[in-house]
Nucleic acid binder design. Structure first.
Length: 211
DNA sequence: TACTGGATTCACT
DNA sequence: GTGAATCCAGTAA
């Protein structure tokens, strides 16, 4: 497997987001296939719309991890793009391939920390629920603020794989359409059971006919 | 310094 | 379908 070079991320986030589908993300023993991505450039819903110290990597780097903390409890992982501009691609969902026991342990531990259903002792944590959301992916892969600002590399990298044909991926909008201006910049591999469960909400809101 | 709200997830009804 | 969890960045004063 060959890691994608930094130069791979020089282009526009909207162009790169669908090309990331099917690529392999690897961190430690955990390996997965990217099945859902979302492009962020300078639209109002993006941290790049108004650059702050937190979001500066979106403007200043490409091929780096931009990991931010949200809702008081979750991390979301992006790869910065747009050399000479501002942009990033959010990894929304991943199909687990290797390191599944580790992912299950991390996800289960996380649930217990929240005081949720610890009684069940979910050793059989459902595989499809491991990484089917941006914060779930971060939990399962052990991604935290420590990874923020690091270059995409060998230790925590994205590896090349054949491109997904255009006919095999779908496009939808963002969930907060009032704020995010209905930009159809969310990409997912059709038929994958591992895409984010909010995809259906999004599709329903913007209307299937728009797709 | 104080306040507001978020690129989410999960349990519960 | 709804609301709680939880804390930090950003903003206003």
């Amino acid at each position: 497997m060959k890691a994608l070079p930094r130069s791979w991320f020089e282009g526009d986030a909207v162009a790169l987001a669908p090309r990331l589908l099917g690529k392999v993300v690897k961190k430690g023993s955990c390996v997965g296939i990217i099945v859902e991505t979302e492009a962020y450039t300078v639209d109002p819903a993006s941290h790049a719309f108004k650059i702050t110290p937190r979001s500066a990597p979106m403007r200043d780097t490409w091929g780096h991890w931009y990991v931010y903390f949200t809702y008081g409890m979750h991390f979301c992982a992006n790869v910065t793009t747009n050399k000479g501009g501002a942009g990033a691609v959010l990894i929304r969902a991943v199909e687990p391939v290797e390191g599944i026991p580790t992912m299950q342990k991390r996800r289960t531990t996380s649930l217990k920390l929240r005081g949720a259903d610890a009684r069940s002792g979910k050793s059989d944590f459902p595989e499809r629920a491991l990484c089917n959301g941006p914060a779930k992916f971060c939990q399962a892969f052990g991604i935290t603020g420590r990874e923020n600002g690091q270059p995409v590399g060998e230790a925590f990298g994205i590896y090349d794989a054949p491109e997904i044909p255009k006919s095999d991926f779908g496009i939808s909008g963002r969930i907060d359409i009032k704020k995010s201006t209905e930009l159809p910049w969310r990409f997912y591999i059709k038929g994958s059971p591992f895409v984010s469960p909010v995809r259906n909400q999004i599709i329903n809101r913007i209307g299937r006919s728009a797709l």
